[in-house]
């Protein structure tokens, strides 16, 4: 195995094309445990952390751009990101310990494609897009088109994620993320839920996105819950529909963290709480970057 640390996107692209059995990585917090668990060792390891564009958070033209290899310890404390996307800051801050957060990246969290990945629901409710590089140049696709199943992604083997793009949210718009784990730190989600709401001046919901993690083979949107919210005030009746729809969209497995029935129920409860949290924030803040 060879180790390389390219300094530009172009260099990384040509390295990736030079060796079919190559693998990009950022924090290696998923890669190392996977290799210990039997994932075949690549011939070429491409460390993305040496490319400045991939390790920064920036703003231009009303867009937030997060480099794919930026440690989540930076993502979670970035002031502008926190103001515009408090839920994404929350989900980034829930990953592992300080040691893990100083290495773990959004690119790695997405491309590991775990159903329980904490940042994917937040990226999805904010309609984040990813810029993907290959020898053909770059293309931009929605985050929701990346994960195709547990551990599998739509990227070709000679492609990698350069950065995430999020549009500044409109007024009276906010997101939130909640996860349920049996302890307060260092565990993988039993269920995670993200919501983003836009409210009008009468606190009626005009736009809603809801995503549930760890309760299906991939993170899933809850369109029925979103429809129940759109055009309605956030009252008990709306919330009851959100709960039922969030539970119904799940196709969970039973494992040591919880049974199917339990996960379905927790998904409903978390969806309700996260919608209330997002609504509270939307009322409190304007929401523009």
């Amino acid at each position: 195995m060879r180790y390389v640390r390219p300094g530009t996107v172009d260099e990384a692209v040509s390295l990736l094309n030079s060796e079919p059995e190559s693998c990009v990585f950022a924090g290696a917090t998923d890669l190392v445990p996977q290799m210990q668990g039997g994932r075949p060792e690549p011939k070429l390891m491409i460390d993305l952390k040496g490319i400045p564009r991939l390790v920064k958070v920036s703003y231009s033209n009303g867009q937030l751009v997060v480099g794919a290899a930026t440690p989540v310890s930076i993502v979670k404390v970035d002031d502008n990101l926190k103001a515009a996307f408090p839920g994404l800051s929350e989900s980034s801050g829930l990953i592992g310990s300080d040691q893990i957060q100083n290495r773990a990246s959004l690119g790695g969290n997405l491309c590991t494609a775990s159903p329980g990945a904490d940042t994917i629901p937040s990226l999805m409710v904010n309609s984040a897009r990813v810029v993907i590089a290959s020898s053909g140049g770059t293309r931009t696709i929605p985050v929701s088109d990346v994960v195709t199943g547990p551990g599998s992604v739509s990227l070709k083997s000679n492609e990698f994620v350069v950065e995430f793009i999020l549009d500044a949210p409109p007024k009276r718009t906010a997101d939130a993320y909640l996860r349920f784990i049996p302890r307060t730190e260092m565990d993988i989600a039993v269920v995670g839920a993200a919501a983003r709401l836009t409210l009008d001046d009468a606190d009626c919901c005009t736009e809603a996105l809801v995503a549930i993690g760890a309760a299906a083979p991939t993170v899933v949107r809850a369109p029925v819950a979103e429809n129940a919210l759109r055009g309605n005030p956030i009252n008990d009746e709306t919330l009851a529909e959100v709960m039922a729809a969030a539970s119904a969209v799940c196709s969970p497995i039973s494992d040591k963290r919880g049974t199917k029935e339990y996960r379905r129920q927790v998904a409903g409860v978390l969806a309700k709480r996260v919608v209330l949290q997002a609504a509270k924030r939307a009322k409190e803040k304007g929401g523009a970057v």
Partner: peptide, 13 residues
């Protein structure tokens, strides 16, 4: 300058 788990980093890094 960053606290990390040395078991998850590759030595050449």
């Amino acid at each position: 300058g960053q606290l990390i788990c040395a078991c998850l980093a590759f030595a050449p890094e």
